[in-house]
Design a protein around this nucleic acid. Sequence first.
DNA 1: CGGTGATTTGAGTATGCTCAATGGGTGTGG
DNA 2: CCACACCCATTGAGCATACTCAAATCACCG
Lengths: 248, 248
Amino acid sequence: MDPSSHPLIASLRTHGPISGEEERVLLASIGPPRYVPIREDIVSEGDSPKESTVLLEGIAARYKHDERGNRRIIALHIPGDFVDLHSFLLPEIDHGIIAMTGCKVAGVPHRSINFLIDNHRGLARLFWLSTLVDASVHRAWLARFGAEAYGRTAGLICEMYLRLKSIGQAEGKSIRLPLTQNDVGDILKLSTVHVNRTIQALRHDGLVAWRGGVITIIDFEKLTAAAGFEARYLYMIEPTNVPDEVAR
Amino acid sequence: MDPSSHPLIASLRTHGPISGEEERVLLASIGPPRYVPIREDIVSEGDSPKESTVLLEGIAARYKHDERGNRRIIALHIPGDFVDLHSFLLPEIDHGIIAMTGCKVAGVPHRSINFLIDNHRGLARLFWLSTLVDASVHRAWLARFGAEAYGRTAGLICEMYLRLKSIGQAEGKSIRLPLTQNDVGDILKLSTVHVNRTIQALRHDGLVAWRGGVITIIDFEKLTAAAGFEARYLYMIEPTNVPDEVAR
DNA sequence: CGGTGATTTGAGTATGCTCAATGGGTGTGG
DNA sequence: CCACACCCATTGAGCATACTCAAATCACCG
């Protein structure tokens, strides 16, 4: 991965190759950056946006509200992710997207996406592929609910560590993931109190340190074992992005 | 929906239009039918298939095994579904697909899919769209875990009723869904015992009847309310498929 | 140095699980 | 035609994971 390139390009490259020409036309389609404050919607439930949004900086989440008004977080997004590429074909978005931290985003008009996929087969495939990987992550999250709190939490940490690492946002064995324990509960379907106790257990067992939004992996081996974690579902093509002790 | 047409065409048409020419070339790409006995894999975890599979008859499920060997069902498929269209772009499939009933399936070679999407823009979009709807259903299932057993079960029933109805497989307010209570537990992450008690509660409250693989909706209003069900995520374009009392 | 939001702790409770046994329906072989 | 086997649904009882409510502590920030 070339850290000098645009986050979207870098992210797409973790899944497949992009030619120089494709990179050029794609970059030309990205609108000006926009800043979204923490806890504000990037896209709201039920919107019919005319552009898709790329996350440039920060952490965003897709969410739905259930009948009781509780928030369920469906997916987490990191810089380079096309957070609502699917809105290009799905007329009305079935969930909201919220900034979990202050976020820098940019739009790509659906008109431009149309042009890109009609004229650049490689991009068309990469866009489709990118939404397929999204779906694969959804499936992994669904499977994760098979485990109890300890394993679910461990799995989430494994995933976010590898994903952030793949875009060059891990520093050694640490990642910055500024989520409150309440946020984590909305992701894992756990109460805040139980998230707290689960993280304490992970700390006590020497798997991770997690303080002030920084997660440090202490024992990746034990962490993946606790989670039953298999990185395959992330469909990353560059094993060099993955630390040696993790590569399978 | 034209009941005389091929299940795949009928199913794709619930999401978007297909021209006669597109229908012709698509049908020409579908291989001969194959029969898969109940509880056998249609596609196995880790396979790298050279074709994608269309379900023609029966119910299939995507599943993963967790570290303890428990099966987690990630998605259910009904006739007309392209159960592993994503394997066209994802090199190795991250989950298995199992026949929950005896199934009739047919393959479409990836080579043919390549040809179709390169030469028929409408089909390319519809294929992409179809995988996007899959992802949308994944998100709905993720959100469903926010509810407890009663609501989760109600939601599953709502979804399967509408989906089966949309392909003409509902008889009035009844659908045939021959899953054991153990299967339902693998879907909803409930023990068999608790599935039994939950279904009894739904019966007792007059929401559904469920006997011998046949689910009859008694009170759809109450059922959707219990589930917090919103049909939007299914992205069906023909509201006429939806019974009046359900249309929103 | 007070205020706000996040983390942490304690205690009682509830949803759902495990284990174990029973009942019902169906298909098959003697 | 009946007996048996098998699979699935059902019931009971005790238990565990995770929840709720409430309060205390901590950390950061103006």
